[in-house]
Each structure stands twice: as C-alpha cells, then as structure tokens.
Write a protein that binds this DNA or RNA. Sequence first.
DNA 1: GTCTATACACCGATAGAC
DNA 2: GTCTATCGGTGTATAGAC
Lengths: 182, 182
Amino acid sequence: MVKDDVIVQLLKVFRQHGYEGTTLTQLSKATGLGKASLYHHFPKGKEEMATAVLSHINDWTAANIITLLRDRELEPALRISVMTKKVSELYNCGQQHCLLAVLTLGESNDLFQAQIQQALKRWIDALADVLLDAGLDEQTASNRAEDAIIKIQGSLILARGLKDTAPFERVLQGLSTELLRM
Amino acid sequence: MVKDDVIVQLLKVFRQHGYEGTTLTQLSKATGLGKASLYHHFPKGKEEMATAVLSHINDWTAANIITLLRDRELEPALRISVMTKKVSELYNCGQQHCLLAVLTLGESNDLFQAQIQQALKRWIDALADVLLDAGLDEQTASNRAEDAIIKIQGSLILARGLKDTAPFERVLQGLSTELLRM
DNA sequence: GTCTATACACCGATAGAC
DNA sequence: GTCTATCGGTGTATAGAC
C-alpha cells in the first residue's frame, strides 16, 4: 500500500474522533495495517501520524485552493466560486469535520498549534488578496476573508449538530456574492 | 460540595477535551473528588456526567439567553445586544470551546445528538422570532438567525486556531447591526 | 514491510471500609 | 458521601520472527 493511501485513511479517523479520541486500534482497522506496521511507517507513533495527516491536508489545500485563489488570470468571482466547489469536496458536502478545527481540542491544540495557525492564516491571506484584486479596500478584504472561513467552519458545526448539511450548502452558495458586494 | 459546582468543573474538562478525550482521572482532579465519589453522584459514569453537563448548559442558556430573546418588552436590537454579552460570558470571551460543538465528535455525536440538535434549534428559533418582531420576513429571519449561530461557532474555531480572540469579538460586535439591516 | 506476542501504564468501573 | 484498593480491559509502544 502506498503511504499516501495510508495517510488518507488515518485522516478519516482523526477528523472524526479528534486526536485524543483516536486510538491505535481504530487507525489499525482503518488502514488494514497492524499496530506494529503503523510504527514502522511512523516511528514516533500517534503524534507522527497526526503530523503526517496535517501535512497531507496542507498539501492538498495548497494544490487545490491556495494556488487557485492566487491565479490572477481568473476573475475574482470565478476563483471564489471554484474555491467553494473545492471546499465542498474537502468536507464531503458538509458531512465531515475540519481536521484543523478538530485538532484545536485538548492536548493536540498545543501539539499542532503552529501548523493549524499557519494553515488558517495562509487561507485567509490568499482569500483577502482575491478581494483586493476585486477592488475592495484592505480592511474590508481582510475582514471578509476571515468571515468566509468563519462561516465555513461554523456551518460545518451546525450541519453536524443539526444532522443536516443544508446550512453548509447555503453558506457556500452565497459566499461569492457576499464577499464581493460593494 | 454542591452538585452544581461539581458539574461546572466537569463542564470545564469536557469542553476542553471532548467526550472521548476526557478521562475519569481528569474529572476527578478537576472536581477534587475520587473516582468512586463521582460514581456515587453519577452511577452510570462518564456518560451520565456528560449528560448532566449538557443539561446544565441547556438550563443556563434557557435562563440567560432564550428567556431574554423572548422578552417582547425589549426592543429587538436591545435583546440581541444583550445576547452577545451573554454569549461572550458563556464562551469566556472566545477562550472556551462550545460544549455542543465539541460533542459532535466521535461516538458522543451519536450519544447526545438529540440534545445537541434540540439546543441549537431552540436558540435559532428564538433568535429568528426576534428578527420577525423587527419586521423581517420569515425566510430572511430564519436564515439570518442560522447565520448568527454559524458566525458564533465559526469565530470560536478561528479564535482557537489563531490563538487570538479578536475574530470572536469582532463577530459579536457586528452581530446586531448585521442581523437587523433592511 | 508485515505480522504475533507482549510489556506496562492507564482506562472505566466496582467493592467495601469508614 | 468519600475514600483506598482493586478488577478486567484497553491504551500506546516495542521485540523479534518471517
């Protein structure tokens, strides 16, 4: 099995149960590998697996979202609407937790704080630059970019709590218009 | 020690670590009670403690937020601005996780789904009714009430991830104006 | 690179003394 | 109502065969 496929399976477990709530038994079942095999790939154990999963998410986001947002050959409105499609894919239409959000709990908040903070900032900054391209002033662009991430994260919480993905879909639906309004 | 004080200490642990991430040792330390003493108060153990904590939060919200929102002797704008103060208190100015959000992880999502869903719906409905009082149409009131909860939840995530409560404070600051705009 | 077997700490939970 | 002591089970992690 390719290591990247293993990491994708690990991701599914961590994002569902959180860091402290995830056990090696669950990770073993999800990957089909024995515990000792997991330690062969990730000698430092659970913490290294979570780090690998975080890096995987960061790579995916850089390739699929950040690069897209920074493509100045596309209209701002198009960049944002394509982003919402990628976001929907990332969170499986609102049915999956955000790994970054989940890792802000308990001890994992300290372990991974730097990576989480950096990932969020990169996303917000890229989005704010799109809004600058669209002609918004710096303060407005910055606040609205932050608002977009806030709404995505909040709607994921609500979708989970209400057992209904409608809030998530509604937020994505209105995002482009709301961010670009004058 | 009064049982309500015990529950407040339990709450602090659950909201920080999640249900699966919380251990009896942590709960024991936080309350100053031995494990066996906790089982005296909560015979069904960890699950019953979490249920009690959820009920406590529901009671607090009913007394401090829902009742306020439904007080038709106050102007809609005033009801909302007082709510934001209570919300800031509930989440310790953005420094604490939302228990409802935290319990949507892992197995606790199944265990407490009904209570979480009901709590969120009650809050959204009460807020939507305020917006109806303010003269908004039903669909707009409903969507904006949902948006308010989304922004509160999302800003809590961001505040935690960025290690900066500014997003939370900014969201609360603008909430009343945003909800009531025509 | 994967496995079985195992070490040892900690988990949730209980018994019984005070 | 709280405690100490303890149970069986599971947690993370490792040793060593293949």
